[in-house]
Design a protein around this nucleic acid. Structure first.
Length: 522
DNA sequence: ACTGCCGGGTT
DNA sequence: AACCCGGCAGT
Protein backbone atom coordinates (compact mmCIF):
# COMPACT_ATOMS: atom_id res chain seq x y z
CA UNK A 1 0.00 0.00 0.00
CA UNK A 2 2.60 2.42 1.02
CA UNK A 3 4.86 1.66 -1.85
CA UNK A 4 1.94 1.92 -4.15
CA UNK A 5 1.24 5.41 -3.03
CA UNK A 6 4.78 6.44 -3.58
CA UNK A 7 4.82 4.99 -7.00
CA UNK A 8 1.62 6.62 -7.95
CA UNK A 9 2.57 10.09 -6.90
CA UNK A 10 2.37 12.19 -9.96
CA UNK A 11 3.82 15.42 -11.06
CA UNK A 12 0.66 16.24 -12.85
CA UNK A 13 -1.05 19.17 -11.38
CA UNK A 14 2.06 20.30 -9.62
CA UNK A 15 3.15 23.84 -9.73
CA UNK A 16 6.41 24.23 -11.50
CA UNK A 17 8.75 27.01 -12.29
CA UNK A 18 9.57 27.49 -15.90
CA UNK A 19 11.80 29.87 -17.75
CA UNK A 20 10.09 32.96 -18.82
CA UNK A 21 8.68 32.72 -22.29
CA UNK A 22 9.75 36.22 -22.96
CA UNK A 23 13.30 35.29 -22.26
CA UNK A 24 13.89 38.00 -19.73
CA UNK A 25 15.15 35.44 -17.27
CA UNK A 26 12.48 35.79 -14.63
CA UNK A 27 10.94 32.39 -13.99
CA UNK A 28 7.21 32.03 -14.19
CA UNK A 29 5.00 29.47 -12.56
CA UNK A 30 2.68 27.04 -14.20
CA UNK A 31 0.83 23.87 -13.57
CA UNK A 32 1.82 20.64 -15.18
CA UNK A 33 -0.98 19.41 -17.35
CA UNK A 34 0.53 16.47 -19.10
CA UNK A 35 3.68 14.51 -19.41
CA UNK A 36 4.91 12.84 -22.53
CA UNK A 37 7.75 10.53 -23.21
CA UNK A 38 9.65 11.32 -26.30
CA UNK A 39 11.94 8.79 -27.82
CA UNK A 40 14.29 11.30 -29.08
CA UNK A 41 17.53 9.65 -28.36
CA UNK A 42 16.94 6.00 -28.95
CA UNK A 43 20.51 5.00 -28.72
CA UNK A 44 21.12 6.59 -25.40
CA UNK A 45 20.79 4.68 -22.19
CA UNK A 46 18.04 6.88 -20.84
CA UNK A 47 16.12 6.32 -23.98
CA UNK A 48 13.24 8.54 -23.06
CA UNK A 49 12.95 12.15 -22.37
CA UNK A 50 10.00 13.66 -20.65
CA UNK A 51 8.17 16.60 -22.04
CA UNK A 52 5.85 18.50 -19.76
CA UNK A 53 2.88 20.42 -20.93
CA UNK A 54 2.53 23.29 -18.55
CA UNK A 55 -0.41 25.55 -18.21
CA UNK A 56 1.06 28.95 -17.69
CA UNK A 57 -0.35 31.72 -15.62
CA UNK A 58 -1.56 33.59 -18.65
CA UNK A 59 -3.55 30.57 -19.74
CA UNK A 60 -1.27 29.46 -22.45
CA UNK A 61 0.15 26.00 -22.78
CA UNK A 62 3.81 25.45 -23.16
CA UNK A 63 6.01 22.46 -23.30
CA UNK A 64 9.21 22.11 -21.44
CA UNK A 65 11.77 19.43 -21.02
CA UNK A 66 12.36 18.36 -17.55
CA UNK A 67 15.68 20.14 -17.33
CA UNK A 68 13.98 23.38 -18.01
CA UNK A 69 11.59 23.46 -15.16
CA UNK A 70 11.67 22.97 -11.45
CA UNK A 71 8.89 21.74 -9.30
CA UNK A 72 7.44 23.19 -6.17
CA UNK A 73 4.21 22.40 -4.47
CA UNK A 74 3.50 25.90 -3.46
CA UNK A 75 5.05 29.25 -3.55
CA UNK A 76 6.73 28.95 -0.24
CA UNK A 77 8.53 25.72 -0.79
CA UNK A 78 11.94 25.85 -2.17
CA UNK A 79 12.45 24.78 -5.68
CA UNK A 80 13.42 21.21 -6.07
CA UNK A 81 14.71 19.56 -9.15
CA UNK A 82 11.85 18.17 -11.07
CA UNK A 83 13.70 15.06 -11.90
CA UNK A 84 13.74 13.85 -8.35
CA UNK A 85 10.03 13.94 -8.11
CA UNK A 86 9.68 12.42 -11.50
CA UNK A 87 11.49 9.33 -10.51
CA UNK A 88 8.52 8.38 -8.47
CA UNK A 89 5.86 9.42 -10.84
CA UNK A 90 6.12 6.58 -13.20
CA UNK A 91 2.46 5.96 -13.45
CA UNK A 92 2.22 7.55 -16.80
CA UNK A 93 2.91 4.65 -18.97
CA UNK A 94 6.43 3.71 -18.11
CA UNK A 95 6.68 -0.06 -18.34
CA UNK A 96 9.07 -0.15 -15.41
CA UNK A 97 6.34 0.83 -13.07
CA UNK A 98 4.76 -2.55 -13.22
CA UNK A 99 7.97 -4.24 -12.44
CA UNK A 100 8.43 -2.05 -9.47
CA UNK A 101 5.17 -3.11 -8.08
CA UNK A 102 6.10 -6.73 -8.04
CA UNK A 103 5.46 -9.79 -10.03
CA UNK A 104 1.79 -10.08 -9.53
CA UNK A 105 -0.35 -7.30 -10.79
CA UNK A 106 -3.34 -6.30 -8.85
CA UNK A 107 -6.53 -5.74 -10.81
CA UNK A 108 -6.17 -2.07 -10.18
CA UNK A 109 -2.73 -2.06 -11.63
CA UNK A 110 -3.94 -3.85 -14.67
CA UNK A 111 -6.65 -1.32 -15.05
CA UNK A 112 -4.19 1.49 -14.72
CA UNK A 113 -2.00 -0.02 -17.29
CA UNK A 114 -4.87 -0.49 -19.64
CA UNK A 115 -5.97 3.08 -19.31
CA UNK A 116 -2.49 4.38 -19.75
CA UNK A 117 -2.00 2.27 -22.82
CA UNK A 118 -5.18 3.41 -24.41
CA UNK A 119 -4.23 6.93 -23.71
CA UNK A 120 -0.88 6.54 -25.28
CA UNK A 121 -2.32 4.92 -28.33
CA UNK A 122 -5.08 7.39 -28.70
CA UNK A 123 -2.94 10.46 -28.56
CA UNK A 124 -0.37 11.31 -31.11
CA UNK A 125 2.64 12.60 -29.27
CA UNK A 126 3.24 15.25 -31.83
CA UNK A 127 -0.22 16.58 -31.94
CA UNK A 128 -1.00 19.36 -29.57
CA UNK A 129 -4.19 20.54 -31.12
CA UNK A 130 -6.23 19.15 -28.32
CA UNK A 131 -8.13 21.76 -26.43
CA UNK A 132 -7.13 22.55 -22.96
CA UNK A 133 -10.34 21.16 -21.65
CA UNK A 134 -9.97 17.87 -23.32
CA UNK A 135 -6.41 17.65 -22.25
CA UNK A 136 -7.40 18.24 -18.71
CA UNK A 137 -10.00 15.59 -18.94
CA UNK A 138 -7.50 13.11 -20.16
CA UNK A 139 -5.16 14.02 -17.44
CA UNK A 140 -7.79 13.45 -14.87
CA UNK A 141 -9.01 10.24 -16.30
CA UNK A 142 -5.70 8.62 -16.81
CA UNK A 143 -3.26 10.08 -14.42
CA UNK A 144 -5.05 11.35 -11.41
CA UNK A 145 -3.59 10.20 -8.22
CA UNK A 146 -6.49 8.04 -7.20
CA UNK A 147 -8.02 5.92 -9.89
CA UNK A 148 -11.74 5.75 -10.07
CA UNK A 149 -12.09 2.17 -9.06
CA UNK A 150 -10.07 2.75 -6.01
CA UNK A 151 -11.91 5.87 -5.14
CA UNK A 152 -15.26 4.20 -5.12
CA UNK A 153 -13.79 1.60 -2.90
CA UNK A 154 -12.67 4.25 -0.52
CA UNK A 155 -16.03 5.83 -0.62
CA UNK A 156 -17.53 2.59 0.49
CA UNK A 157 -15.03 2.48 3.29
CA UNK A 158 -15.95 5.96 4.29
CA UNK A 159 -19.56 4.98 4.32
CA UNK A 160 -18.72 2.17 6.62
CA UNK A 161 -16.76 4.42 8.85
CA UNK A 162 -19.54 6.92 8.94
CA UNK A 163 -22.05 4.25 9.64
CA UNK A 164 -19.88 2.95 12.41
CA UNK A 165 -19.70 6.40 13.88
CA UNK A 166 -23.41 6.70 13.72
CA UNK A 167 -23.80 3.40 15.41
CA UNK A 168 -21.35 4.36 18.06
CA UNK A 169 -23.20 7.50 18.84
CA UNK A 170 -26.40 5.56 18.84
CA UNK A 171 -25.21 2.91 21.15
CA UNK A 172 -24.31 5.54 23.64
CA UNK A 173 -27.24 7.77 23.15
CA UNK A 174 -30.30 6.82 21.21
CA UNK A 175 -31.54 10.32 21.54
CA UNK A 176 -28.72 11.86 19.68
CA UNK A 177 -28.72 11.73 15.96
CA UNK A 178 -25.63 13.71 15.51
CA UNK A 179 -22.06 12.55 15.79
CA UNK A 180 -20.62 11.99 19.25
CA UNK A 181 -19.02 15.36 19.19
CA UNK A 182 -22.36 16.91 19.56
CA UNK A 183 -23.11 14.69 22.46
CA UNK A 184 -20.20 16.09 24.27
CA UNK A 185 -21.15 19.58 23.43
CA UNK A 186 -24.60 19.09 24.70
CA UNK A 187 -23.36 17.46 27.82
CA UNK A 188 -20.93 20.15 28.55
CA UNK A 189 -23.76 22.54 28.36
CA UNK A 190 -26.43 20.74 30.21
CA UNK A 191 -25.03 18.01 32.34
CA UNK A 192 -21.48 18.56 33.26
CA UNK A 193 -22.41 20.61 36.26
CA UNK A 194 -23.35 17.69 38.37
CA UNK A 195 -19.83 16.42 38.42
CA UNK A 196 -20.46 12.99 37.11
CA UNK A 197 -17.74 10.87 35.71
CA UNK A 198 -18.92 11.07 32.18
CA UNK A 199 -21.73 10.46 29.80
CA UNK A 200 -20.58 7.10 28.64
CA UNK A 201 -20.40 5.37 31.95
CA UNK A 202 -23.95 4.42 32.59
CA UNK A 203 -22.99 2.16 35.43
CA UNK A 204 -21.47 5.01 37.32
CA UNK A 205 -23.54 5.99 40.24
CA UNK A 206 -24.84 9.34 39.40
CA UNK A 207 -26.89 11.57 37.30
CA UNK A 208 -25.59 11.37 33.82
CA UNK A 209 -25.35 7.66 34.18
CA UNK A 210 -28.95 7.67 35.01
CA UNK A 211 -29.65 9.79 32.05
CA UNK A 212 -28.09 7.46 29.63
CA UNK A 213 -29.57 4.35 31.00
CA UNK A 214 -32.79 6.20 31.09
CA UNK A 215 -33.09 6.46 27.40
CA UNK A 216 -31.12 3.46 26.41
CA UNK A 217 -33.37 0.70 27.70
CA UNK A 218 -36.03 1.51 25.22
CA UNK A 219 -34.99 -1.74 23.78
CA UNK A 220 -34.49 -4.84 25.73
CA UNK A 221 -30.84 -4.48 26.19
CA UNK A 222 -28.93 -3.85 29.30
CA UNK A 223 -28.62 -0.12 29.76
CA UNK A 224 -24.99 -0.37 30.59
CA UNK A 225 -24.21 -2.23 27.41
CA UNK A 226 -26.61 -1.22 24.73
CA UNK A 227 -26.36 -3.47 21.79
CA UNK A 228 -25.78 -1.69 18.51
CA UNK A 229 -28.33 -3.51 16.42
CA UNK A 230 -31.09 -2.74 18.80
CA UNK A 231 -29.95 0.77 19.11
CA UNK A 232 -29.95 0.97 15.42
CA UNK A 233 -33.46 -0.20 15.54
CA UNK A 234 -34.40 2.42 18.00
CA UNK A 235 -32.66 4.85 15.78
CA UNK A 236 -34.67 3.98 12.74
CA UNK A 237 -37.83 5.71 13.81
CA UNK A 238 -35.90 8.94 13.91
CA UNK A 239 -35.25 8.66 10.30
CA UNK A 240 -38.45 7.17 9.08
CA UNK A 241 -41.00 9.87 9.15
CA UNK A 242 -43.70 7.63 7.83
CA UNK A 243 -43.99 6.17 11.28
CA UNK A 244 -45.33 9.37 12.57
CA UNK A 245 -48.53 11.02 11.57
CA UNK A 246 -47.32 14.54 11.30
CA UNK A 247 -46.60 14.46 7.69
CA UNK A 248 -45.01 12.67 4.80
CA UNK A 249 -42.45 15.35 4.39
CA UNK A 250 -38.78 14.83 5.03
CA UNK A 251 -38.04 14.16 8.63
CA UNK A 252 -35.07 16.42 8.56
CA UNK A 253 -33.28 18.35 5.90
CA UNK A 254 -29.95 17.45 7.33
CA UNK A 255 -27.63 14.87 5.96
CA UNK A 256 -29.50 12.74 3.51
CA UNK A 257 -26.47 10.55 3.16
CA UNK A 258 -27.29 8.97 6.45
CA UNK A 259 -30.53 7.80 5.07
CA UNK A 260 -28.75 6.18 2.27
CA UNK A 261 -26.54 4.41 4.66
CA UNK A 262 -29.49 3.21 6.53
CA UNK A 263 -30.99 1.93 3.38
CA UNK A 264 -27.89 0.15 2.39
CA UNK A 265 -27.79 -1.37 5.83
CA UNK A 266 -24.13 -1.99 5.59
CA UNK A 267 -23.59 -2.97 9.14
CA UNK A 268 -26.96 -3.82 10.42
CA UNK A 269 -28.10 -7.21 11.29
CA UNK A 270 -31.49 -6.52 10.02
CA UNK A 271 -33.89 -9.37 10.55
CA UNK A 272 -34.19 -9.19 14.28
CA UNK A 273 -34.57 -5.47 14.75
CA UNK A 274 -36.79 -5.03 11.77
CA UNK A 275 -39.19 -7.57 13.03
CA UNK A 276 -40.28 -5.39 15.86
CA UNK A 277 -40.72 -2.29 13.86
CA UNK A 278 -44.25 -3.04 12.87
CA UNK A 279 -45.64 -2.96 16.34
CA UNK A 280 -43.65 0.09 17.26
CA UNK A 281 -44.84 3.61 17.29
CA UNK A 282 -42.44 6.30 18.27
CA UNK A 283 -43.35 9.66 19.59
CA UNK A 284 -41.09 12.43 20.67
CA UNK A 285 -41.84 14.29 23.80
CA UNK A 286 -40.54 17.65 24.80
CA UNK A 287 -38.96 17.58 28.19
CA UNK A 288 -38.82 21.27 28.66
CA UNK A 289 -40.22 22.46 31.89
CA UNK A 290 -43.91 23.15 31.72
CA UNK A 291 -44.11 21.89 28.20
CA UNK A 292 -44.45 18.25 27.42
CA UNK A 293 -45.43 18.61 23.85
CA UNK A 294 -45.52 15.34 21.99
CA UNK A 295 -44.78 15.13 18.34
CA UNK A 296 -44.46 12.20 16.08
CA UNK A 297 -41.27 13.18 14.34
CA UNK A 298 -37.88 13.97 15.64
CA UNK A 299 -37.60 16.86 13.28
CA UNK A 300 -40.82 18.23 14.56
CA UNK A 301 -39.85 18.06 18.15
CA UNK A 302 -36.48 19.49 17.37
CA UNK A 303 -38.04 22.34 15.55
CA UNK A 304 -40.40 22.87 18.41
CA UNK A 305 -37.61 22.99 20.96
CA UNK A 306 -35.42 25.08 18.80
CA UNK A 307 -37.98 27.68 18.09
CA UNK A 308 -40.11 27.68 21.19
CA UNK A 309 -37.64 26.97 23.95
CA UNK A 310 -34.27 27.81 22.58
CA UNK A 311 -35.55 30.84 20.79
CA UNK A 312 -33.76 30.10 17.60
CA UNK A 313 -35.45 30.91 14.40
CA UNK A 314 -32.86 29.56 12.13
CA UNK A 315 -33.22 26.33 10.32
CA UNK A 316 -32.17 22.98 11.56
CA UNK A 317 -28.88 23.28 9.78
CA UNK A 318 -27.71 25.84 12.24
CA UNK A 319 -28.66 23.70 15.15
CA UNK A 320 -25.90 22.55 17.42
CA UNK A 321 -27.76 19.50 18.50
CA UNK A 322 -28.78 20.92 21.81
CA UNK A 323 -32.41 20.15 21.17
CA UNK A 324 -31.58 16.51 21.41
CA UNK A 325 -31.32 16.82 25.12
CA UNK A 326 -34.66 18.41 25.56
CA UNK A 327 -36.82 15.73 24.15
CA UNK A 328 -37.15 12.08 24.66
CA UNK A 329 -38.28 9.26 22.54
CA UNK A 330 -41.40 7.50 23.55
CA UNK A 331 -41.77 4.06 22.20
CA UNK A 332 -45.24 2.76 21.97
CA UNK A 333 -44.92 -0.88 21.47
CA UNK A 334 -47.83 -2.98 22.48
CA UNK A 335 -45.65 -6.03 22.49
CA UNK A 336 -43.11 -4.41 24.71
CA UNK A 337 -45.73 -3.25 27.10
CA UNK A 338 -47.19 -6.67 27.33
CA UNK A 339 -43.77 -8.19 27.82
CA UNK A 340 -42.65 -5.71 30.37
CA UNK A 341 -45.74 -6.01 32.45
CA UNK A 342 -46.09 -9.71 32.11
CA UNK A 343 -42.65 -10.02 33.52
CA UNK A 344 -43.83 -8.12 36.52
CA UNK A 345 -47.31 -9.40 36.87
CA UNK A 346 -46.54 -12.90 38.13
CA UNK A 347 -45.09 -11.29 41.17
CA UNK A 348 -48.15 -9.67 42.51
CA UNK A 349 -51.05 -9.84 40.14
CA UNK A 350 -53.27 -8.19 42.67
CA UNK A 351 -51.20 -5.05 42.65
CA UNK A 352 -50.57 -4.87 38.97
CA UNK A 353 -53.56 -4.31 36.87
CA UNK A 354 -53.33 -5.65 33.36
CA UNK A 355 -52.65 -2.77 31.02
CA UNK A 356 -55.22 -2.16 28.37
CA UNK A 357 -53.71 -1.65 24.97
CA UNK A 358 -52.92 2.02 24.81
CA UNK A 359 -55.20 3.79 22.39
CA UNK A 360 -52.96 6.80 22.48
CA UNK A 361 -49.59 7.47 24.05
CA UNK A 362 -50.57 9.83 26.75
CA UNK A 363 -53.29 7.83 28.44
CA UNK A 364 -51.12 4.81 28.60
CA UNK A 365 -48.36 6.81 30.09
CA UNK A 366 -50.47 8.03 32.86
CA UNK A 367 -51.92 4.65 33.52
CA UNK A 368 -48.78 2.68 33.77
CA UNK A 369 -47.32 4.27 36.85
CA UNK A 370 -50.62 4.08 38.57
CA UNK A 371 -50.74 0.39 38.19
CA UNK A 372 -47.74 0.10 40.44
CA UNK A 373 -49.29 1.95 43.27
CA UNK A 374 -51.49 0.50 45.92
CA UNK A 375 -55.11 0.90 44.96
CA UNK A 376 -55.91 3.18 47.87
CA UNK A 377 -53.66 5.84 46.47
CA UNK A 378 -55.43 5.86 43.17
CA UNK A 379 -57.31 9.00 44.01
CA UNK A 380 -54.12 10.99 43.90
CA UNK A 381 -53.56 10.13 40.32
CA UNK A 382 -56.44 12.22 39.09
CA UNK A 383 -54.52 15.42 38.59
CA UNK A 384 -51.85 13.59 36.73
CA UNK A 385 -54.24 11.75 34.54
CA UNK A 386 -55.49 15.06 33.31
CA UNK A 387 -52.05 15.56 31.89
CA UNK A 388 -51.82 19.21 32.76
CA UNK A 389 -48.58 18.88 34.63
CA UNK A 390 -45.58 18.38 32.46
CA UNK A 391 -43.86 16.59 35.27
CA UNK A 392 -46.50 14.04 35.54
CA UNK A 393 -46.04 13.29 31.91
CA UNK A 394 -42.36 13.33 31.53
CA UNK A 395 -41.59 10.94 34.29
CA UNK A 396 -44.14 8.37 33.25
CA UNK A 397 -42.87 8.49 29.76
CA UNK A 398 -39.48 7.50 30.95
CA UNK A 399 -41.00 4.83 33.04
CA UNK A 400 -42.76 3.59 30.04
CA UNK A 401 -39.51 3.08 28.29
CA UNK A 402 -38.07 1.24 31.16
CA UNK A 403 -40.94 -1.09 31.37
CA UNK A 404 -40.01 -2.49 28.08
CA UNK A 405 -36.85 -3.61 29.69
CA UNK A 406 -36.10 -6.56 31.84
CA UNK A 407 -37.95 -6.72 35.06
CA UNK A 408 -34.93 -6.48 37.26
CA UNK A 409 -33.89 -3.35 35.51
CA UNK A 410 -37.20 -1.82 36.25
CA UNK A 411 -36.92 -2.22 39.97
CA UNK A 412 -35.16 1.04 40.52
CA UNK A 413 -37.15 3.13 38.10
CA UNK A 414 -40.39 1.85 39.43
CA UNK A 415 -39.91 3.86 42.53
CA UNK A 416 -39.70 7.05 40.59
CA UNK A 417 -43.30 7.44 39.63
CA UNK A 418 -44.29 6.60 43.14
CA UNK A 419 -42.33 9.45 44.53
CA UNK A 420 -43.69 11.55 41.81
CA UNK A 421 -47.24 10.82 42.73
CA UNK A 422 -46.62 11.51 46.36
CA UNK A 423 -44.68 14.68 46.17
CA UNK A 424 -46.38 16.20 43.24
CA UNK A 425 -43.34 17.00 41.22
CA UNK A 426 -40.82 18.56 43.52
CA UNK A 427 -37.82 16.37 43.44
CA UNK A 428 -39.28 14.15 40.82
CA UNK A 429 -39.16 16.89 38.30
CA UNK A 430 -35.84 15.41 37.58
CA UNK A 431 -36.76 14.68 34.06
CA UNK A 432 -37.03 18.21 32.99
CA UNK A 433 -33.83 19.40 31.47
CA UNK A 434 -33.56 22.26 33.87
CA UNK A 435 -33.35 20.10 36.93
CA UNK A 436 -30.94 17.23 37.00
CA UNK A 437 -30.85 16.78 40.73
CA UNK A 438 -33.30 13.95 40.62
CA UNK A 439 -30.71 11.75 39.08
CA UNK A 440 -29.05 11.28 42.38
CA UNK A 441 -30.94 8.07 42.76
CA UNK A 442 -28.78 5.07 42.92
CA UNK A 443 -29.77 4.07 39.52
CA UNK A 444 -28.31 0.79 38.62
CA UNK A 445 -29.25 -1.77 41.14
CA UNK A 446 -27.47 -5.07 40.83
CA UNK A 447 -29.58 -7.90 39.50
CA UNK A 448 -29.18 -9.57 42.85
CA UNK A 449 -31.75 -7.20 44.20
CA UNK A 450 -34.38 -9.81 43.82
CA UNK A 451 -34.04 -10.96 47.33
CA UNK A 452 -36.33 -8.61 49.11
CA UNK A 453 -33.87 -7.11 51.54
CA UNK A 454 -31.37 -6.39 48.86
CA UNK A 455 -33.21 -3.31 47.81
CA UNK A 456 -30.62 -0.63 47.61
CA UNK A 457 -30.39 1.37 50.84
CA UNK A 458 -29.93 4.52 48.90
CA UNK A 459 -33.27 3.97 47.33
CA UNK A 460 -34.84 3.54 50.70
CA UNK A 461 -33.33 6.80 51.70
CA UNK A 462 -34.40 8.60 48.64
CA UNK A 463 -37.96 7.48 48.85
CA UNK A 464 -40.42 6.83 51.56
CA UNK A 465 -41.04 3.65 53.40
CA UNK A 466 -44.04 2.95 51.30
CA UNK A 467 -41.98 3.08 48.17
CA UNK A 468 -39.50 0.59 49.42
CA UNK A 469 -42.41 -1.60 50.29
CA UNK A 470 -43.52 -1.38 46.75
CA UNK A 471 -40.10 -2.23 45.55
CA UNK A 472 -39.94 -5.18 47.83
CA UNK A 473 -43.20 -6.43 46.48
CA UNK A 474 -42.09 -6.00 42.96
CA UNK A 475 -38.79 -7.64 43.51
CA UNK A 476 -40.23 -10.56 45.36
CA UNK A 477 -41.21 -12.65 42.36
CA UNK A 478 -37.79 -13.96 41.56
CA UNK A 479 -37.42 -15.12 45.07
CA UNK A 480 -40.72 -16.88 44.89
CA UNK A 481 -39.84 -18.46 41.63
CA UNK A 482 -36.57 -19.75 42.95
CA UNK A 483 -38.33 -21.20 45.94
CA UNK A 484 -40.99 -22.75 43.81
CA UNK A 485 -38.88 -23.49 40.85
CA UNK A 486 -36.87 -26.15 42.56
CA UNK A 487 -39.07 -29.12 42.83
CA UNK A 488 -39.90 -30.15 46.30
CA UNK A 489 -37.99 -33.23 46.97
CA UNK A 490 -40.16 -36.21 46.30
CA UNK A 491 -40.91 -38.37 49.26
CA UNK A 492 -41.75 -41.44 47.29
CA UNK A 493 -39.38 -44.02 46.03
CA UNK A 494 -37.37 -43.28 43.01
CA UNK A 495 -35.82 -45.41 40.40
CA UNK A 496 -32.52 -45.37 42.12
CA UNK A 497 -34.00 -46.61 45.33
CA UNK A 498 -36.23 -49.12 43.68
CA UNK A 499 -33.81 -50.66 41.29
CA UNK A 500 -30.56 -49.70 42.87
CA UNK A 501 -27.43 -48.59 41.19
CA UNK A 502 -26.76 -52.02 39.78
CA UNK A 503 -29.97 -51.94 37.76
CA UNK A 504 -29.44 -48.54 36.47
CA UNK A 505 -30.63 -49.53 33.03
CA UNK A 506 -34.03 -50.12 34.50
CA UNK A 507 -34.34 -46.58 35.69
CA UNK A 508 -36.42 -44.15 33.93
CA UNK A 509 -34.47 -41.95 31.61
CA UNK A 510 -34.92 -38.96 33.83
CA UNK A 511 -33.37 -40.74 36.75
CA UNK A 512 -30.58 -41.90 34.57
CA UNK A 513 -29.98 -38.38 33.55
CA UNK A 514 -30.20 -37.18 37.08
CA UNK A 515 -33.38 -35.40 36.29
CA UNK A 516 -36.65 -35.44 38.12
CA UNK A 517 -37.96 -38.94 38.15
CA UNK A 518 -40.75 -39.49 35.72
CA UNK A 519 -41.76 -42.92 36.84
CA UNK A 520 -42.43 -42.46 40.50
CA UNK A 521 -43.82 -39.04 40.60
CA UNK A 522 -45.15 -37.84 43.88
C1' DA B 1 -23.29 -39.73 53.22
C1' DC B 2 -27.16 -40.44 50.53
C1' DT B 3 -30.46 -38.87 47.46
C1' DG B 4 -33.18 -36.00 44.14
C1' DC B 5 -32.65 -33.14 40.59
C1' DC B 6 -31.39 -28.50 38.55
C1' DG B 7 -28.49 -26.25 35.41
C1' DG B 8 -25.48 -26.62 32.03
C1' DG B 9 -22.37 -28.95 28.95
C1' DT B 10 -21.46 -32.32 25.26
C1' DT B 11 -22.58 -35.19 21.43
C1' DA C 1 -32.96 -34.22 21.55
C1' DA C 2 -30.46 -37.43 24.01
C1' DC C 3 -27.20 -37.91 27.25
C1' DC C 4 -24.05 -36.84 30.95
C1' DC C 5 -22.42 -34.68 35.07
C1' DG C 6 -21.15 -31.03 38.64
C1' DG C 7 -23.04 -29.37 42.28
C1' DC C 8 -26.75 -27.81 45.37
C1' DA C 9 -29.95 -28.91 48.80
C1' DG C 10 -32.85 -31.86 51.62
C1' DT C 11 -32.75 -35.89 54.44
Amino acid sequence: MHTRRLVKRSILGSRVYAPSPTGDGAPVTGVVQAVKQENRDVSAAGARRSVYTVLMQDGSLKEFYEEEIAAGFNHTTAKVPLKSSLKQSSSNGAPESQKVEGGSLSPEAVEEQRMADSKRIGRDPDTRSVSLLEQKRKVVSSSIDVPHARRSEEEVDMDKVTAAMVLTSLSTSPLVRSPPVKVNEGLSGSWKDNGSAGPFTPSSNSSSGGYWSWSAPSDQSNPSTPSPPLSADSFKPFRVPSLGGVGPGPAGPEDPSLDEQDGSSLLFDEPIPRKRKNSMKVMFKCLWKNCGKVLSTAAGIQRHIRTIHLGRNCDSDCSDGEEDFYYTEIKLNTDSVADGLSSLSPVSPSVLSPPPPPPSPLPSLSQLPDSHRPPQSSDTKEPHASGTTPLSRSAPSALYLIHTDHAYQATAPVSIPSSNSNSAGSASTSFTPTNSSSFSISWQSPPVTFTGNSVSPSKSQSFGEQRSQTIAVLSSPPRATTALSRKVRGEGKKCRKVYGMENRDMWCTACRWKKACQRFTD
